[in-house]
Design a protein around this nucleic acid. Sequence first.
DNA 1: TATTGTATTGTAACCGGTTTCATAACATGA
DNA 2: TCATGTTATGAAACCGGTTACAATACAATA
Lengths: 336, 336
Amino acid sequence: MKTVTINDIAKEAGVSKATVSRVLNRPGSVEEGTRKKVMAVIAKRRYSPSVSARNLSRQTSSTVGVIVPEIDNPFFGEALRGITGVLDRHNLTMICFNTDDLVEKDRKAIQMLKEHRVVGLLYDPAIDYDLSDQKKEINHLIQELKGPVVIMDRNVDSLREYDGVFFDDRRGVCEATEALIRAGHRRIGIVNATLERVLARIRLAGYRDALEKHGIAFEEKYCYLGDYSMASSYELSSRMLEMEERSTAVVTCNNQISMGFLKALYDHGLTLSDVICIGLDRIEALDIVRSNFNYVKRDAKLLGKTSAEMLIHRIAFPNDEMQTVYLPHEIVIRKL
Amino acid sequence: MKTVTINDIAKEAGVSKATVSRVLNRPGSVEEGTRKKVMAVIAKRRYSPSVSARNLSRQTSSTVGVIVPEIDNPFFGEALRGITGVLDRHNLTMICFNTDDLVEKDRKAIQMLKEHRVVGLLYDPAIDYDLSDQKKEINHLIQELKGPVVIMDRNVDSLREYDGVFFDDRRGVCEATEALIRAGHRRIGIVNATLERVLARIRLAGYRDALEKHGIAFEEKYCYLGDYSMASSYELSSRMLEMEERSTAVVTCNNQISMGFLKALYDHGLTLSDVICIGLDRIEALDIVRSNFNYVKRDAKLLGKTSAEMLIHRIAFPNDEMQTVYLPHEIVIRKL
DNA sequence: TATTGTATTGTAACCGGTTTCATAACATGA
DNA sequence: TCATGTTATGAAACCGGTTACAATACAATA
């Protein structure tokens, strides 16, 4: 059961291994008769060249790394789908890491990708490391990657020098909040992650933009900060629902947070008619059953696709000007 | 900017590259002073060994392949989450392919994984190739992989000789259907994929089991077969809802099909009180908002975790007896 | 002290490809 | 017929690691 190598093929076909290599890589440079003979042996022996050997010899690879924080979050599932579509077309292989939003796993993943000599990286960073010690180490590692990097989704300060694809969440959340305000809501809550996290800062800024624009005072007591998990959101949302003079409407800052809020809402015997909610990201099933869940629609698949395309462009043109793309969103209102 | 190699380290540390290699792989076999000296140079130059070179030399790798049909389906997202958890703990890297349920992409993916000399494969096969020509080729390729294979989720006939982790959908669907029958339903519809697909056959069998057990005649007209997409299900479900003497309850055979059915239902001005539905797989959001969607709960993350653990066991003990595991499910009833 | 064993390190072969360069075979044109 | 150019192929070096084996130094033992 030993693996068939190029030497086996060469010997059996009665040629040198250089010729076998040429048959595979530059078929035009080899005589038709030889080519056929070699191809026949390759087919007969079911030979597949070794990627490791090829990479080592060519001093490059055809794999890209992808790092996402929560592979089981539908948002990232869709993003991955967008990515694989593009990579497939370019015959690139994807090495994929899930970080559980932990910086340490980010670091490990990037280290492995460096060792793999990937041609590029699509990186959705564990968001809170702007101020941490690990930041420097991660930045180091990223610079040492063979290929370019595209930052996806989370516009981390310390990674501004790379290409990036994001949504304009500041505007998105602002518009969402404004929709609530225009419908007459004044006590508007927000459930968000804590402010070490870039996106949390960005989104809170959007919320405040809207309040300010309409002359409504920002109040701490309507502002609930935890992390991006459903459990955390459930906790916070419950407190929010139990306060006196509770808010009449709420902004929930990602789909896990939305889910936690909904769970708390229903556990308190309330519905989306009692407290209006607008969340970041669609929750498909709710849309289908005509629930009153409003949302900022962001196309995660497009995020993945665009990022992957940008990476491939950058690999081809390393010296083009660095670019940051903001993808469009859409405010979808079901009930205010 | 040239990549640092083991030779650079050896030279700078004043030792041979064999020693550098030993420092990294068998630190005990090298004198403490030398070790420190070498480690210092490694740190200073930020050296990371090349995976390709190592793989080539060791004639093995530390990557496993994962093939899933729809990476953006939450079911597979959760499965992947289960997988990455296990792989991380074993310091294995994951090369991941999405096949869009196309056999040809299965083939391509396995070919690439063969070239990558992966140590193992977790394979959720594009389901319908039992009878196709490509089956033989895929079976060939799988046998030629360096490492073992675990079949996940879809118990394809032609892959029975491998370890497998599945749910017992025949029993699951049977129990689901029985629940409907016991609640008094007699005209029970089913929306499913066409019967080239293993899971579709298995699930239909479960449905028929239940009918038979309760002396209800199976009728073609309540049986709608398409593919595993929402679009297909929407189409079929619409027809079902428009027929005279339509069914009072419906079994939907995966979450995409459930979504398609729900969309059709609501588009026809009906709700889950008008037509009772029990689907395969939970739809989290519906559960949270207390919709009447009943379901067979299957733990996809556990599927991934179990499969990955089985693969790792098999890598360690290639000669243990082959095993097939059926994971438990749970019937969750909201309204009948 | 001579002998044997042990710990540490270096040398060189090897893994399976790619690529440069040399060579041979052949066709072309003078 | 000979010089020249072109095409097809092979020999060998190289990519960056690992490892079997040899060599050396030094300690332990008789």
